[in-house]
Amino acid sequence: MEEKMMKEEFMPEDSSPVPMKARFNFCPDGWFSHGSRCLLFVNIPMSWYNAEEHCNSMGANLASVSNPREYSYLQHITKTGGQSIVWLGGFYLQGRWLWIDREGLYYTNWYAQSTSSSYPCMYLRTTNGWGNTQCTSGYRFICSKNPFGC
């Protein structure tokens, strides 16, 4: 996939800034732009580990969630892809839940939490909240990256 990027032109100090509506979408073709992130729904079932590796190959990670609005948007992408469950980037390690992209896990939206040590990988549910299961389950997934991460 080819990324389309526009060069910023030099602006003299006395010129006015570019209005917000004139900003360009720096996400690669096929990716959704949401907030400061680019998101990609991958319609191929994989284990949590393989899904994260697939995202890594595109300079991304499995998606993290920092607020209800983001979660709602990820649910929308999942429904649009014809799914009810997708992998998220949450995992359980050494007694706590973490995001694979190193974001802080301050917002939680558990629907039903299974034993964390036996089911250490997190998935999104389109109906309500997220859950956790074995990492070897095969689900579709959402990759997330910063458009300016290079």
Rank of each mutant, 00 (worst) to 15 (best):
K4D: 06
K4H: 11
K7C: 11
E8V: 14
E9P: 04
M11E: 14
P12G: 14
P19L: 07
M20E: 15
N25V: 04
F26N: 00
C27H: 02
W31Y: 04
F32C: 11
S33R: 09
H34N: 00
R37L: 12
R37V: 14
C38V: 02
C38W: 07
L39P: 01
L40H: 00
L40C: 03
F41E: 00
V42A: 00
I44L: 14
I44M: 06
A51R: 01
H54R: 06
N56G: 05
N56Y: 03
S57W: 04
S57D: 09
S57K: 04
A63I: 05
S64F: 02
P68H: 04
L74V: 01
H76G: 09
T78R: 09
K79F: 06
S84E: 13
I85D: 12
W87L: 05
G89L: 02
G89Q: 05
G90L: 00
G95P: 00
G95R: 07
G95Q: 06
R96S: 09
W97P: 01
L98S: 07
W99A: 00
R102F: 12
G104K: 08
G104V: 06
T108Y: 11
W110E: 03
A112R: 13
Q113W: 01
S116M: 05
S118W: 10
M122K: 11
L124M: 02
T126V: 11
T127E: 15
T127M: 13
G129Y: 05
G129A: 12
N132K: 10
N132I: 04
T133I: 09
T133G: 12
Q134V: 08
T136L: 10
T136E: 15
G138A: 12
R140T: 15
I142L: 11
C143P: 09
P147L: 05
C150T: 14
